[in-house]
Nucleic acid binder design. Structure first.
Lengths: 187, 187
DNA sequence: AGAAAAATTTATCAAATGATAAAAAAGGGA
DNA sequence: TCCCTTTTTTATCATTTGATAAATTTTTCT
């Protein structure tokens, strides 16, 4: 998924504004297992996934909780850093070798104040992330772990192939052992 | 909490832009128990709470799940309606007699395209809701029901006084009976 | 105030999940 | 390929939470 597709999906910009915004992106590659965003740091960059997959998680006294998975076209960001310039809650780990579009956000605030199209692009970006956050919140609260696992299988059949079970278990809010049990019963 | 305080808290507007935006608000009062936002409808209005308290919830085959509580200064909105003009996931019920600022959103899209300050106000509004949604998602996933109840008590001591236990239980993701049990053990 | 409705507590039993440990299977690197 | 590490499965027992029902307390309405 290329940068034009990613930008257009958020909000359609004029050719001119798009050029101005695109100047702030660079294309980068990072290896599997890299933790690209750290919970204890204020991050200056956000990323859009060109190719690969990532997961957002927090560590709570020895336990890891996975909040979301991101794939091609999705965002990798410390929202607290991006929005409030404060250190965030989440770590983000690359689960495959990834090609990313990196956006340094220091200059973005100036663009928001100068260019109304880019301001609205930023508005839509936040709004779309907000809808996704709400959907995650709702799906997490609905039904049993078994139901949520089946839901996940239905909506993201490729995820199971690309992500290890322990991460999926922590996404579902159960232990890896419980998920293994559930899978046995489904078969 | 008056409308100027609410608007300023989101993003500081020039006097002129603030007047333009404020023209779209009206002050309204509604009684306790009213369901002001319905999950099965596309809602044209969003609200800010001047006085009172509300809860956001979904009904899933006979069970109710409370996603959030809102108090003075908070927003009451069907995010899907506001952002995507589609029917939302959530019902919103007033838990007290409420005084609200009602914002009809049909004209808001035009303002976003015409006034860069208001566009940035809308951006900040979405960003702040996004941070809140993320915090809810994280807090819901952390620790046992007992820990989450104690956390809630610490952060919102007045909530217990104003909201009935069944709603708090469904917010914590447990049954009312379980919460009652937990409270007995804490004492 | 008094009656009716709603909310909360208490109790019992069943089901789901956690914690731990150990075995089996899969994956990665020299 | 082979060895070592990581991941997944399986098993056992303890704990938490759910479902249901009934009793008690609180709230609401006239």
């Amino acid at each position: 998924m290329n940068i034009d597709q990613i930008l257009d999906k958020i909000y359609p910009l004029s050719a001119k504004s798009k050029l101005v915004l695109k100047e702030n992106f660079i294309e980068v590659s990072f290896p599997k297992h890299l933790i690209i965003i750290r919970a204890d740091k204020v991050e200056k960059n956000i990323y859009f996934i060109k190719k690969g997959i990532a997961r957002t998680f927090s560590r709570i006294d020895d336990n890891e909780i996975t909040f979301s998975f991101g794939k091609e076209g999705d965002t990798i960001a410390s929202l607290k850093s991006y929005i409030a310039n404060q250190k965030g809650y989440e770590n983000i780990e690359l689960l495959e070798d990834c090609e990313l579009y990196e956006l340094n956000t220091e200059n973005l605030q100036n663009l928001f104040n100068e260019n109304i199209e880019i301001a609205n692009w930023g508005r839509k970006f936040a709004e779309q992330e907000l809808i996704k956050a709400e959907e995650r919140l709702i799906s997490r609260q609905l039904g049993t772990a078994t139901e949520r696992y089946n839901e996940l299988l239905k909506n993201y059949p490729d995820l199971i192939q690309r992500v290890q079970l322990g991460h999926i278990a922590s996404y579902l809010g159960i232990t890896q052992v419980s998920l293994s049990r559930i899978r046995t019963n489904i078969k």
